[in-house]
Amino acid sequence: MHQALLIIDVQPSFAPPQWLIDGIQVLIGTLPSVATVERHDESKTPFQKQLGWHPAPDDESLIQADRIFIKHGYTPTPETIEYLKSLKVDRVLVCGLQTETCCLAAGFALFDAGLQPTLITDLTVGSSLDRTGVLGVRLWEHHFGHTVRSGEL
């Protein structure tokens, strides 16, 4: 199966646990990889105005993926989705931070683009609402059906 890895927002602003970084690093170099980095620009996404918080304006990915795309807000950019489509993959493996928000938003964008989003359930961390990510995994299974564990790859 031809697949790619989409790493969502593993960056200093979100203080990812070391086990997540280490687990994702194991996959780097084994398949094409893309990482997103969420940066703050209030003129594009009103995090401060609406939520009273925002990511850093200059964060960098803590994972050295093949390609890194900057985004503002929850959803991957159209350029990110087009790049993944250009790889002609059977599925896109998704991991990273904010299982029930940014990862789920990526799943919807991938699905709407005709790609098969597949969540790596043991390489994701939920938001402050549910750090376990269980809520996000349940939402993912409901909307997209496809999940795997890293040991299955």
Score class of each variant (00 low, 15 high):
53 W>N: 09
28 I>V: 14
22 D>Q: 15
33 S>I: 08
29 G>P: 06
63 I>K: 08
63 I>L: 06
58 D>K: 11
72 H>Y: 08
44 K>F: 00
54 H>P: 01
24 I>V: 11
20 L>W: 03
13 S>C: 04
53 W>I: 14
48 Q>F: 08
70 I>P: 09
58 D>Q: 09
13 S>H: 13
16 P>F: 01
34 V>H: 02
38 E>I: 06
15 A>S: 12
66 D>G: 11
41 D>V: 04
54 H>W: 02
47 F>G: 06
24 I>E: 08
53 W>Q: 09
67 R>I: 12
13 S>K: 03
22 D>W: 10
29 G>C: 10
62 L>H: 04
50 Q>A: 11
28 I>L: 06
72 H>G: 13
19 W>Y: 14
68 I>T: 15
46 P>F: 03
37 V>E: 00
45 T>I: 03
18 Q>W: 13
59 D>H: 05
64 Q>K: 12
72 H>Q: 13
50 Q>T: 15
62 L>N: 11
50 Q>D: 10
38 E>G: 03
61 S>N: 09
51 L>P: 04
31 L>D: 08
12 P>N: 05
61 S>W: 06
19 W>D: 01
48 Q>P: 02
65 A>N: 04
62 L>F: 00
12 P>R: 04
66 D>L: 12
51 L>K: 12
21 I>H: 05
39 R>F: 00
54 H>F: 02
63 I>C: 06
44 K>H: 05
51 L>D: 03
64 Q>S: 14
60 E>W: 15
55 P>N: 03
61 S>H: 14
37 V>H: 01
23 G>K: 04
67 R>M: 09
65 A>L: 03
38 E>Y: 00
32 P>H: 11
50 Q>I: 14
70 I>F: 01
21 I>E: 02
12 P>Y: 13
29 G>D: 06
59 D>N: 08
46 P>V: 04
66 D>H: 13
15 A>F: 15
70 I>R: 07
45 T>K: 14
28 I>K: 08
30 T>S: 11
53 W>E: 01
40 H>F: 10
23 G>A: 12
62 L>G: 02
